[in-house]
Design a protein around this nucleic acid. Sequence first.
DNA 1: AATGAATGAGCATTCATTCAT
DNA 2: TATGAATGAATGCTCATTCAT
Lengths: 200, 200, 200, 200
Amino acid sequence: MKDIHKHSKIITAATKVFAKKGFFNARISDIAKEAKVADGTIYLYFNNKYDILISVFEEEIGKIVEQIKKSLAEETDPRKMLEIFATKHLQSMKKNKNLAEVIQIELRQTNKLIKDYRNNKFSDYTDLVEEIIRLGQKQNIYCLDVEPGIAKRIFFGALEEVSRVWNTSIDGHYTVDEISGQLLKIFLSGILLPEKNAAR
Amino acid sequence: MKDIHKHSKIITAATKVFAKKGFFNARISDIAKEAKVADGTIYLYFNNKYDILISVFEEEIGKIVEQIKKSLAEETDPRKMLEIFATKHLQSMKKNKNLAEVIQIELRQTNKLIKDYRNNKFSDYTDLVEEIIRLGQKQNIYCLDVEPGIAKRIFFGALEEVSRVWNTSIDGHYTVDEISGQLLKIFLSGILLPEKNAAR
Amino acid sequence: MKDIHKHSKIITAATKVFAKKGFFNARISDIAKEAKVADGTIYLYFNNKYDILISVFEEEIGKIVEQIKKSLAEETDPRKMLEIFATKHLQSMKKNKNLAEVIQIELRQTNKLIKDYRNNKFSDYTDLVEEIIRLGQKQNIYCLDVEPGIAKRIFFGALEEVSRVWNTSIDGHYTVDEISGQLLKIFLSGILLPEKNAAR
Amino acid sequence: MKDIHKHSKIITAATKVFAKKGFFNARISDIAKEAKVADGTIYLYFNNKYDILISVFEEEIGKIVEQIKKSLAEETDPRKMLEIFATKHLQSMKKNKNLAEVIQIELRQTNKLIKDYRNNKFSDYTDLVEEIIRLGQKQNIYCLDVEPGIAKRIFFGALEEVSRVWNTSIDGHYTVDEISGQLLKIFLSGILLPEKNAAR
DNA sequence: AATGAATGAGCATTCATTCAT
DNA sequence: TATGAATGAATGCTCATTCAT
C-alpha cells in the first residue's frame, strides 16, 4: 500500500507540474519536490520522464472513462448519452485543470514522439462518442449522412476547445451547463434558425 | 532581397523541423541544416529559438488571414462565409501540414510560456468566426440563443481537430470537401433528423 | 566531510588551471578534469565560473590573512610588523604560485567586471599595511609626512611585483629573504624618522 | 596616409574598448564600431585580436619610452632621473587611463598567453629604471647593497600600484605631484647613502 | 525501499575570422 | 581598399538518469 501511496503521490505531483510548466520545462526534481520524495525514488516507480507523462494520462483519463461508461450504461437515448458525455467531460476538466492542460497540450505534443505508445486509453475515450453516434443512427435519431468518424472529431475538438476557457484567464465565467448546453444545441440542432434550415 | 530569401528559407525550414520533431526536440542545427545555412546565420535573422517559432506562426498565419479576409469580402451570406472559412482553413492545413502541426501543438504549448507574446494574429483569425456568427444573427439567419464567443470555440475546436486527420496516419483519405461538408452540416443543422429536432 | 573534500579539490584544481591558462581561457572541463570530477559536479558546489574564481580567491587569501594576523598579534614593533607581513606574503606566494598569479592577474581583471563583488577580503588584507603604518606614526617611529593610504599602495605594489619573480622564468633564483630584505631596506629606511634611521 | 589614419583610429578605439571591457570581453565588432570601420577592415591592418592588443601596447608605450628617454638625456643626476621617470609615467597614466588599464591588467594577462611575444618594449621601459639605479651606484649616490634588478621591480611595482588610483573610484583626488612626491620620498631616502640623504 | 550526490551527454548561443562583392 | 553577411567551431551550463550508501 505504501508503494501505491508513493506512486499516487508522484502522479498527482507530476500532473500539477506538467500543467504548470509543460512537459519539457518540468524537471524531475520539480516533481520530486512536489511529491516530497527524492529524485531517485521516482525511478523506482517509473522508467523515465515520458513514462510519467503517459502514466499521468492513463491513470487519470482511466478514472474518467470508467465514470462516464458507468453513467452511460444507465442511459439508452443517444441524445442524453451525448449530453452525459459532454457534461462529465467538462466537469472533469473544470475540476482538474492540471489534467486538462496535460491532455490538451502535452499529450498531443508527445504523442507523436513516443512511438511505442499506441492503443491508448484516449482512443477508447473518444471512440465512446463514435459509438454513441452509430447507436443514434441505428435508432433512426441521428442523420445517416453524418460520418461517425468525422463527427467524433468534430464533437471532441469542440469539447476540448471550449473546455480551455477554464485554463485561460478570459471567459472563465461560463459554467459547465452553459457551455455544455451551447455545444449540444449546436451539435444536435445546428445554428441555423429552423425555417432557414428547411430552406437549405 | 537576399535577406528576405534567407529569412524565408529559415522560416520554411523551421516550420518543417518543428512539425516533425516538436519545438523542444528541434535543434537549431536541425533548422540550419534544413535551411542550408550555418547555425550562426539563424541568429542574424532571429533573436532566439522562441523568436523563430513566433515568426513561423505570425508569418504563415498572416498569409492565411489575408487570403480568407479577401475571400470573405466578396460574400454576404453568413452561411457561405462559414463555408469559405472552413474550406480555406482546411485547404491551408492540408497543404501545409507542417504549419498545421505547429499551430495545433507547438503554439498552444509555448503560448503559455512566452508571456510577452500577446495580441497575436491567431486571435484575429479566430475572431473572424465570431464576427460571422454575429453577422448571421443580425441577419436573422443564425439563432440568437447561440453565444458567439462559445460558438467560435466550438467551430474552431472542431475545425482543428478534423484537420488533424492529415497529420495522423489514420483516416487520411478524407478530402477537404468531405470534411468541410460534414462540419458545416453539423454546425449549421446539427446531427438530429429534422423531425426529431422538432420534437425536442 | 565528503562535500568539503570535493569543494576543496575543485578550488585547488581551479587555482591551478586559472594560473596556467588564465580565467577566460580556462574551461570548466579543464577544471573538472584536473579535479577528477564530472563537469556537472562543479555546479553542485559553485554557481558559475565567476563564482569559482571568487571562491578561489576568498578562501585562499582568507587563510593567509588569518596566518598573518596571528603572527602580527604577537608583535608590537611596527618595523618588525612590516617585516612579518612582507615575509609571510612572499612565502605564501612562493609556495602557492598558482594563487599568486590568480591574485596578481585574474582578480584585477575580473574585479572590474563583477560589479557585485565588493567588500572583499583583499581590502582587509592590504588595509593591514595601512594600519601598521599608522601605528608606527603614533609610536613616533614612522615619518608623519608619509600618507598611509599611498604608502600602503607603494608597499603592496612593490611586494606584488617582486613576488612575480617566481612566476616568470627569469630571476627565479632569489630567495624570500633576499627579496624581503631588499624591499624592507628600501621601504623602511625611507619612512623611518632620521634619528630612528640612524639608530638602525 | 589614409592607411596610417585607419590604423591609428583602430588602435585608439581598441585601447578604449580594451580598457572598458577587458581584452576577453571586448568584441572585434565593438572596436570596429568605435573606430567607425567595418569588422572586416580591422583584418586588413591586424592579423588577429591578440595582434591588436600587442600593437596597442607597443605603439602607445613606445611613445612614452621615447618621451622619457628624451627627458632623461638632458639630466645627469640619478635622483632627478628617477623623479623624471616617475612623474612622466604618472602623467602618462593619468592622461591616458585606457592605456593604463591595458598595461596594468590586460597585458600581464595575455603576456603569458602569447608565447611568441618576447623582448618587448615593456622590458626596455622598466630596464630604464635599472640603468638609472646602476648609474647612481657608479656615481656613489645610491647604496651598493641595493640589487638593481630587485629595486627596479620595487620601484615599478609601486609606481603601477599608485597609478591605479585614477582608474578606481576611490582616492582619485591625489595629484600626480603628491603621489610622485610620496613615492620618491620613500624610495629615494631608502636607497641614498646616509651622507647623501642628509644632504638632501 | 529510499536517498541525493554524482555523472556526462547534449545544446543554444556567441564571436573571431573569412570572403564574395 | 572596404564592406558586412556568413560561417561554424567552441563552451558554459542543465538535467535525466544512475548507483553507492
